[in-house]
């Protein structure tokens, strides 16, 4: 009896398809990844069960560990409008602010956040993010004033509301885990004074805590 020959099959596989999938995934993940914005202060937000993801057009009030407050308006166009309102209010009091030129105003719209009193805006707008970080490390930035005697934060909120007009506007508070509650309460109070009674708290997605 002749032996039945089992035909030998090649062990090679066509890898082309797999290669395609691999690079497709790679491209996808790289293109969809978003860079974290260059934030002035390192904020470790507390974790919560909330699952609603943050939209980009939030107006964020950041409260850092020491209780300093930073104001982050969203788009450059809005920032320009907001600045106009602030200049209207403080332009006569701080003449440098009132006499800001177009270049300074453009620079203002590119600021990541407002971390200084309104009076200092003309000097600060030209600085780069790295310089601001340096100043923050040296303790030269005190954030937006929020005392009852000099409530600039409230003015920013008001200016933002004017700038947005009838458009929907969402305020968010972003606090550090260890932020003292007094500063947070003060910010909430200011928002309430300006009739902003509903806002968001920015938190991190909670892991398996329970």
């Amino acid at each position: 009896m002749p032996k039945i020959k089992v035909p030998r099959k090649s062990t090679h596989m066509d890898m082309t398809a797999m290669c395609d999938v691999g690079f497709l995934l790679l491209t996808f993940f790289i293109l969809t990844a978003k860079f974290r914005p260059n934030e002035l202060v390192e904020i470790v937000t507390p974790a919560s069960r909330a699952t609603e993801t943050v939209k980009d057009d939030l107006v964020t009030i950041t409260v850092d560990k020491t209780g300093n407050v930073y104001y982050v308006a969203s788009s450059p166009r809005r920032k320009a409008d907001i600045l106009e309102k602030m200049v209207e209010k403080y332009g006569t009091k701080y003449t440098m602010l009132g006499n800001m030129n177009t270049k300074q105003k453009t620079q203002f719209t590119q600021l990541e956040q407002i971390a200084f009193p309104a009076q200092a805006i003309p000097q600060m707008v030209g600085l780069k993010q790295a310089q601001l970080k340096d100043m923050l490390a040296k303790g030269q930035l005190s954030g937006v004033p929020k005392d009852s005697t000099n409530n600039e934060l409230g003015d920013w909120v008001m200016a933002t509301r004017y700038a947005y007009g009838d458009d929907k506007i969402t305020f968010a508070i972003k606090g550090d885990k260890t932020s003292n509650i007094v500063a947070i309460k003060r910010v909430i109070d200011i928002l309430r004074e300006k009739d902003v009674n509903s806002f968001k708290l920015v938190t991190a997605l909670e892991g398996n805590k329970d």
Binding site: A50, V54, S198, K200, L201, A204
Partner: peptide, 10 residues
């Protein structure tokens, strides 16, 4: 680290 937001109404 996707930030999420919780709503708070006062």
């Amino acid at each position: 680290s996707k930030p999420v937001a919780m709503n708070l109404s006062m």
